[in-house]
Design a protein around this nucleic acid. Structure first.
Lengths: 242, 242
DNA sequence: TGTACATCAGTGAACGCGCGTTCACTGATGTAC
DNA sequence: TGTACATCAGTGAACGCGCGTTCACTGATGTAC
């Protein structure tokens, strides 16, 4: 087709061409297989098909590789949460619950990223890029909580929006790490993790005055649909599909 | 004092005398230091002052040692939760919140046990003794949730008691693993983990109809104090002591 | 009470292995002129 | 367009290390008689 250099088959001569990326992918695969503690720098090199010394051209050590993966994970996580939140459409509560489901979906679909982010022991604070990425992801949850806080019916005592965000994050993370993944160390559940989280969030929201006393439209944004006022039932009535 | 053999000084001759116990303690200390992934069988032997072959007399391998620690952790955990629950005294809601605090306290005070139990990758299901111990610990939370469920005001939709127990467990575990320990990988919080959990549980309980519509006494047991009816305020009004 | 013997619990030397890391090197690529 | 040279990115051999595990062994303990 084309004779342009960029389109050459990646025949993998002496130079790999994109080893950094290949190492990240290889490590991700190994983490998915054996957990974040179960892969080594040499493993990643072997899996990428290069000599054990090659990774040193791209990462100072294993921790730097792991931190890169965690950072990328947080970025992808943020993107998923942003998409789910969809700026609070069609209404704040619906979007909020969707964020919760997106959280679990990420933990389930990207267990390697998730464990690199939360279970690998990578210190978040010491790496500015990493902690910024982490903050941006949490920022989505926090922004959603702030919109929710602005809607809380008057007269209902509520904590700061930050705290609400932390509650939702904690419950999501707790469910994800106790029940949300397929590995053998997790406990069996008589319901799906998704149903468990949805019910928990619903009860929590009810404790904040939602949706019984919910306003017909979000006065904070003035753009919510009438679906906002539709009555909601807990999901614990129907059997889980899982 | 006494010349009885049992009272001899443990002069550590050829025979250790209590090596199994010593290995468990040594491993516990190493886990506290470096995490459950960061210790080795040889480490434990060295730390207990014996040759690297000695542990094989007591444990098949590192996993069996780790499982023993996790089991012991669950037993101690169960004891703490039982003490905190105190059979629902002086009233169900107060005792329930106390269980939550005990959960966090255990995670904070016994991080080595906690991580062996929940973060070490030990498969719970395949070891009957271990999974039984785990079930007994969770049983305390479930029993508390069942008492709570029996008190739920009529007309308030609520999930099965098992699900309520899982919600509380998940939120507690989420807070403990994200914010509850001192290690560097955890995130900084503008409040204490205890306050965060207490507020979260209060909102959750409010979502179940507590305590606003709470009965003056637990009709389920008929033995609760009048404090049951006292109004409760969220802890988010006062500054955290931390 | 004493003795012979079996069993228990730990020793220490040895092994093979894979890891992290360094090193001089070399093939490939980019660029100045 | 061609050439010389600098730089880049990977090689492969080597090292020291600690781990898991095995092995024949031996000191200590318990017990039958």
């Amino acid at each position: 087709m084309s004779w342009r250099k960029d389109h050459r088959r990646p025949e993998r001569g002496y130079h790999h061409g994109n080893l950094k990326e290949a190492l990240l992918q290889a490590a991700l695969g190994l983490i998915a297989e054996k957990g974040p503690a179960g892969f080594t720098f040499a493993d990643a090199a072997r899996s990428a098909g290069v000599s054990p010394a090659a990774p040193y051209r791209h990462f100072r050590d294993r921790d730097e590789l792991l931190a890169s993966i965690a950072q990328r994970g947080f970025e992808q996580f943020e993107a998923e949460l942003t998409r789910a939140w969809d700026d609070g459409r069609p209404d704040t509560v619906t979007a909020f619950e969707r964020v919760g489901r997106a959280y679990l979906a990420f933990a389930r679909n990207e267990p390697a990223y998730y464990s690199a982010m939360f279970e690998s022991g990578v210190p978040i604070d010491v790496n500015p890029m990493l902690s910024a990425a982490s903050e941006r992801a949490f920022g989505i949850i926090r922004a959603a909580a702030e919109r929710l806080a602005a809607l809380t019916p008057p007269g209902v005592a509520r904590p700061p929006a930050l705290m609400m965000a932390l509650h939702i994050w904690s419950m999501s993370h707790g469910i994800a790490s106790l029940f949300g993944r397929g590995d053998a160390a997790r406990r069996k559940l008589p319901m799906s993790a998704e149903d468990l989280l949805e019910a928990g969030v619903l009860i929590y929201l009810r404790g904040l005055g939602f949706p019984a006393e919910r306003k017909p439209s979000d006065s904070a944004t003035g753009s919510e649909s009438a679906a906002e006022a539709a009555p909601r039932r807990g999901p614990w009535g129907h059997k889980s599909a899982t």
